[in-house]
């Protein structure tokens, strides 16, 4: 396959990683053969590209490693994988809860770079107020963020979900590339992105500022300690 990362971009990322990464980060990628049960005809086309871009990315820093599990139901179960491809950003402030379903391309490539930096440093840029509020969530909470790679407002919504997941491991922050998962998108009536769904019961469209986003997350979280 032809290289996906342009030379300029490689140079930039290498430099960025050198300056900003401290601790190791592991990217865990799940793939299946084309007839695999978690893959569909749309997502299948993207699998080789997803693998290729991640290989090119981890080659740019010795602090970032890539682990690929292909057709591995045991590992899929361990990580709670529901669709393929699935990518987990693993490090000191995550626990199988910062997730990308589908390729992190277009605008979402920025989200991945920023996630890697946050996970390596073990901290996020969420406000103190948000971090405090997030501690109220004490039971499993899933934030689904449907995106398209051509949506400039989407990375903000993805990053907010991912940073919340880094702050509280009861939260799973999940990006879904809508083009690759039309059935999944249809289930939630996704016709505009970003669309955010929290625990199947609370949802909103469009990019919201952190405090308003948080209100929806708290509302959708199943079990909140009452003040």
């Amino acid at each position: 396959m032809e290289k996906l990362l342009k030379e300029n971009d490689e140079k930039y990322i290498k430099d960025l990683f050198e300056k900003r990464l401290t601790d190791p980060v592991e990217l865990v990628l799940f793939l299946e053969s084309e007839n695999g049960e978690k893959v569909n005809k749309f997502s299948a086309q993207y699998l080789p590209y997803t693998e290729e871009i991640l290989k090119e990315l981890v080659a740019l820093s010795d602090k970032v490693k890539l682990t690929v599990y292909k057709d591995n139901p045991e590992k899929e179960k361990e990580y709670g994988v529901t669709h393929i491809s699935a990518l987990f950003v693993e490090g000191k402030n995550t626990d199988k809860n910062v997730i990308y379903y589908g390729i992190p391309s277009g605008h979402e490539f920025s989200s991945l770079l920023e996630d890697i930096i946050d996970v390596s440093n073990g901290k996020t840029e969420l406000s103190t107020q948000t971090k405090l509020e997030l501690q109220k969530i004490t039971s499993p909470t899933e934030i689904l963020v449907f995106v398209t790679p051509t949506c400039p407002y989407c990375p903000r919504a993805v990053r907010t979900a991912h940073q919340m997941a880094m702050e509280n491991h009861n939260i799973k922050g999940i990006m879904i590339e809508a083009n690759e998962f039309p059935e999944w998108s249809k289930k939630y009536n996704v016709y505009a992105v970003p669309k955010v769904v929290i625990n199947d019961k609370e949802q909103f469209e469009g990019a919201l500022p952190e405090d308003e986003y948080l209100k929806h997350v708290i509302k959708g979280a199943v079990n909140i300690i009452l003040e």
Binding site: L4, L5, K6, D9, Y12, I13, L16, K19, R20, Y49, I53, I103, S105, G106, H107, F109, S110, L113, E114, I117, E125, P149, T150, P152, P155
Partner: peptide
């Protein structure tokens, strides 16, 4: 395949 990296790179270029 479409161009994957339409948006270029991250906004967090500088040291935080």
């Amino acid at each position: 395949m479409d161009d994957f990296f339409v948006g270029g790179l991250s906004s967090q270029e500088t040291e935080s």
